[in-house]
Computed example of a mutant assay.
Amino acid sequence: MKSLGSIRRDFAPWADPGAKPYISFENVTKKFGDFIAVNDLSLNIYEREFFALLGASGCGKSTLLRMLAGFDEPTSGRILLDGQDLRGIPPYRRPVNMMFQSYALFPHMTVEGNIAFGLKQDNMPKAEIEARVKEMLRLVKLEQFAKRKPHQLSGGQRQRVALARSVAKRPKVLLLDEPLGALDKKLREETQFELMDLQQSLGLTFVVVTHDQEEAMTMADRIAILDKGEVMQVATPAEVYEAPGSRFVAGFVGNVNMFEGRVAARDAGIARITGASGAEIIVENAGDAETGNAVSFAIRPEKIKVSSRRPEGAVNAMEGEVFDLAYLGDMTVYHVRLDDGQVVKASSLNASRVTEDPLTWNDRAWISFPPDAGVVLTR
Score class of each variant (00 low, 15 high):
residue 226 L to M: 14
residue 227 D to A: 13
residue 227 D to R: 15
residue 227 D to M: 12
residue 228 K to Y: 10
residue 229 G to T: 09
residue 229 G to M: 08
residue 229 G to E: 05
residue 230 E to R: 15
residue 230 E to T: 14
residue 231 V to G: 03
residue 232 M to Y: 06
residue 232 M to L: 12
residue 233 Q to L: 09
residue 234 V to H: 08
residue 234 V to R: 05
residue 234 V to N: 08
residue 235 A to P: 05
residue 236 T to H: 08
residue 236 T to R: 07
residue 239 E to D: 14
residue 240 V to Q: 13
residue 240 V to T: 11
residue 241 Y to A: 11
residue 242 E to Q: 15
residue 243 A to D: 13
residue 243 A to S: 15
residue 244 P to H: 10
residue 245 G to K: 13
residue 247 R to A: 10
residue 248 F to P: 05
residue 249 V to D: 00
residue 249 V to S: 01
residue 250 A to L: 01
residue 250 A to F: 01
residue 251 G to S: 11
residue 251 G to F: 03
residue 253 V to M: 01
residue 255 N to M: 12
residue 256 V to T: 13
residue 257 N to F: 01
residue 257 N to S: 10
residue 258 M to R: 09
residue 258 M to S: 10
residue 258 M to C: 09
residue 258 M to T: 11
residue 258 M to I: 14
residue 259 F to L: 14
residue 260 E to S: 13
residue 261 G to Q: 06
residue 261 G to T: 02
residue 261 G to N: 07
residue 263 V to S: 03
residue 263 V to C: 06
residue 265 A to W: 07
residue 265 A to M: 12
residue 266 R to V: 11
residue 266 R to M: 11
residue 267 D to K: 15
residue 268 A to I: 13
residue 268 A to C: 13
residue 269 G to F: 13
residue 270 I to C: 12
residue 271 A to P: 07
residue 271 A to I: 02
residue 272 R to F: 00
residue 274 T to M: 04
residue 274 T to K: 01
residue 275 G to D: 07
residue 275 G to H: 03
residue 275 G to L: 11
residue 276 A to K: 05
residue 276 A to G: 10
residue 277 S to K: 04
residue 277 S to H: 04
residue 278 G to I: 03
residue 279 A to L: 10
residue 279 A to N: 11
residue 279 A to H: 09
